[in-house]
Amino acid sequence: NQASVVANQLIPISTHLTLVMMRSEVVTPVGIPAEDIPRLVSMQVNRAVPLGTTLMPDMVKGYA
C-alpha cells in the first residue's frame, strides 16, 4: 500500500505548503504520493483543505 499526502491541519486557500502542514498516511482513495512531499513545499493549494483530507493533484497549483 502506497502512502499519500494528507493535510495535518486546515490549509486555507492559496496557502504555500510547508512540511508541518502535511503527513503521509495510507488512505483510500490514493492521492499525491508521500514521496512527493519535498516537491510540494512552497506550492500553493487552490482550495481550502480540511484537516485529514488527502491531497489530490488538482488541489495543488502547478503539481499536475
Rank of each mutant, 00 (worst) to 15 (best):
V20G: 14
S24C: 06
T15I: 05
A7E: 01
A7L: 03
V49H: 02
E35W: 10
L40G: 00
M59A: 08
P38Q: 11
G31T: 01
P50R: 12
A48E: 15
I11D: 00
L17W: 00
S42L: 09
R47I: 11
Q9Y: 10
V5G: 02
G31C: 03
G52Q: 02
A64L: 15
R39V: 13
D36S: 09
V26K: 09
Q9G: 04
K61S: 12
Y63P: 04
Q9L: 11
N8P: 01
P33Q: 05
M21A: 03
M43P: 00
G31W: 03
L55P: 00
V45P: 02
V30L: 10
T18I: 06
A7Q: 01
K61P: 13
V20S: 11
S42D: 13
I11V: 05
V6K: 03
N1T: 13
S4W: 03
V45S: 05
R23S: 06
G52P: 01
Q44C: 06
N1V: 13
P12C: 05
A64H: 14
V30E: 09
L51G: 14
Y63C: 04
T28Q: 15
P12T: 07
A64Y: 11
V27E: 02
S24D: 07
I13W: 09
Q44S: 11
V45Q: 00
L19N: 09
L19A: 15
M56N: 05
S14A: 14
T15F: 07
I13K: 13
Q2C: 09
M59N: 05
V49E: 03
D58Q: 12
M56R: 09
N1M: 14
D58L: 08
L10Y: 15
T15G: 06
N46F: 06
I37E: 00
I11R: 02
M21N: 07
V20M: 13
V41H: 03
M56T: 12
G52M: 04
P33F: 09
M22R: 00
M21P: 01
Q9T: 10
D36M: 15
A48T: 14
Q2V: 11
L10T: 11
T54C: 05
T53I: 08
S14E: 15
A64E: 12
R39T: 13
V45D: 01
N46A: 14
G62T: 06
A7F: 02
V45L: 08
M59T: 06
Q44N: 04
L51F: 11
T28D: 12
